[in-house]
C-alpha cells in the first residue's frame, strides 16, 4: 500500500508552481508589448488574459490538491503489475539533449551523432543486454549511414555535417 493520493498531490503542486511562474513570466514579457494601434485590443491583451487565467487556475488546482491531501486516505498506489523506470525516462531526455547539443555546437555531424545516439540509448534502455546491444549497433550503422544518404539524396534535407 502506498499513499498514491499524496504522490499525486505533490505532482499537482509542482505543476501548479511551474504554471504560476509561467503566468508571471508571460505578464513580465507582456509589459514590453507596445500599446494597441490598429485595433482596440492590441497584441498584449491575449497574453495577459492567458497569464491571469493560468495563475487563477493553478491556484484552484493547488487548493484542490491541498484539500485532497488533508482528506488523505490510504489507497493502493496502482493496479499496474510492472515497475516504472524513471531513470530510463531521464536517460532518454538526457541522451536526446546531448545528441542535439553535439550537433548544435558542431561537435558531431548527423551521421556520427546518430550512430552514437542509437547505440548508446539502445544499450541503456536494454540495461546493457548483449543481444540487444548487437542489434542496436547494426541499427545505429544502418540509420546513421543509410539515413544520411537517403534523406540527403532523396528527400533533399541538408542534415548537419
Amino acid at each position: 500500500m502506498d499513499t498514491a493520493r499524496s504522490k499525486f498531490s505533490q505532482i499537482d503542486f509542482s505543476i501548479c508552481a511551474a504554471l504560476f511562474a509561467l503566468g508571471g513570466l508571460i505578464l513580465w514579457g507582456a509589459k514590453d508589448i507596445p500599446p494597441p494601434f490598429f485595433d482596440p485590443l492590441g497584441s498584449a491583451a491575449l497574453p495577459k488574459v492567458c497569464a491571469y487565467l493560468i495563475i487563477a487556475f493553478s491556484l484552484v488546482i493547488a487548493a484542490r490538491a491541498f484539500l485532497r491531501l488533508k482528506s488523505e486516505t490510504k489507497v493502493a498506489s496502482s493496479d499496474d503489475d510492472f515497475k516504472p523506470e524513471p531513470w530510463l525516462a531521464v536517460a532518454v531526455v538526457l541522451l536526446a539533449s546531448l545528441y542535439t547539443l553535439s550537433m548544435n555546437l558542431g561537435w558531431l555531424g548527423f551521421r556520427s551523432g546518430t550512430v552514437l545516439f542509437i547505440f548508446s540509448l539502445g544499450a541503456v534502455l536494454s540495461r546493457f543486454d548483449k543481444t540487444t546491444m548487437i542489434v542496436s549497433g547494426g541499427l545505429a550503422l544502418l540509420f546513421g549511414l543509410g539515413g544520411q544518404y537517403i534523406f540527403t539524396e532523396f528527400f533533399y534535407i541538408d542534415l548537419p555535417k
Binding site: 545516439f117 539502445g122 540487444t132 541499427l139 545505429a140 534523406f151 534535407i157 548537419p160
Partner: peptide, 22 residues
C-alpha cells in the same frame, strides 16, 4: 530499446527539415 532511439531520429529529421534549424 530499438524503437525509441529510431523514432527520435525521425523526430530530429522531421523538425530539422522544416527550416534547417537545430
Amino acid at each position: 530499446a530499438y524503437l525509441i532511439p529510431i523514432i527520435f531520429i525521425f523526430c530530429v529529421i522531421g523538425a530539422y527539415a522544416l527550416s534547417n534549424r537545430i
